[in-house]
Computed example of a mutant assay.
Amino acid sequence: MPSDELAISLYRIGAIKFGRFKLTSGIESPIYIDLRLAITHPSIYRQLVKSMADLLSGFNIDAVAGIETAGIPWASMVAYELGKGMIYVRKEAKEHGTARLVEGDLRQGMRVAVIDDVVTTGGSIIRAIRLLGATVAM
């Protein structure tokens, strides 16, 4: 599906909206793209995952990391498409189990692509990158 058809499909399912939307960052946007809707439409989801995987295939990565919660299904499918491992970064540590903020087999020297469902200021992505770096430094 060409990118213009994909954009039309996203609009048809209500994933692209126009109006006034307050984002988590507090910034107001005239456009809102809700990729959580795309997950419930396999043909659209498949095309978006393939597009992301195609973009990342030119980089020498070892794993794909998703940010809890909405970034996890995207990272999982992109990692699968690329034949790479998947890691995820929690928003906060659980008080049970290992109480880790980073889940998965992350090792020193790994090159990791970080995926989230949306980026406004980049704060969540930067936090995830810092946590990934701190985890392998331990």
Rank of each mutant, 00 (worst) to 15 (best):
R20A: 13
A137M: 08
R100D: 13
L6E: 10
G122V: 03
I72Q: 00
A38M: 08
D34P: 01
L6S: 03
L10T: 12
L56N: 04
E28Q: 10
A15K: 10
R36T: 11
Q47A: 10
R130H: 09
S9F: 02
Y11L: 07
T69K: 00
H41K: 14
A75H: 06
P73E: 03
K91V: 01
D105M: 03
I72L: 05
A65T: 07
I39N: 03
M52S: 14
A113I: 07
I129L: 02
Y88K: 05
A75E: 12
G58Q: 06
S57H: 09
P42S: 15
G71A: 02
H41P: 05
A99P: 01
K94M: 05
K84F: 08
S76Y: 10
L48K: 00
T135V: 08
F21T: 06
M86Q: 06
V78A: 07
D54E: 15
Q108L: 05
S124W: 04
R127W: 07
D4A: 14
I72W: 02
V136G: 03
G85W: 06
L101A: 01
I27D: 00
T40K: 14
I87W: 13
R20E: 14
A75I: 12
K22E: 12
D54M: 03
A15G: 06
A75V: 09
T40R: 12
A15H: 10
Y32M: 04
D105P: 05
I44Q: 06
D54N: 12
K84S: 11
G19S: 13
G122Q: 01
V102I: 08
R107I: 13
E28N: 00
A15S: 11
Y11W: 14
L131W: 00
K94I: 08
D105S: 02
E92Q: 15
P30W: 02
V136N: 04
R36V: 11
R111F: 00
L132C: 08
T120I: 08
R20W: 03
K94D: 10
V136R: 15
I16D: 11
K91E: 09
T69G: 02
V118D: 07
E103V: 11
G14W: 12
R127T: 14
R100M: 08
G123M: 02
I31Y: 06
G97E: 04
D116Y: 04
N60G: 09
T40H: 14
V64W: 05
A128F: 09
S9A: 15
D54K: 12
G66S: 10
Q108E: 07
G104W: 02
I87V: 14
D116K: 12
Y32A: 08
K50Y: 13
A7T: 11
A65R: 11
R36N: 14
M86T: 06
I115S: 01
D105N: 12
G109L: 04
G123Q: 01
L48S: 06
S57W: 07
R20F: 06
E103F: 10
G85T: 12
E5T: 12
I13E: 11
I67F: 05
L37F: 01
L56Y: 09
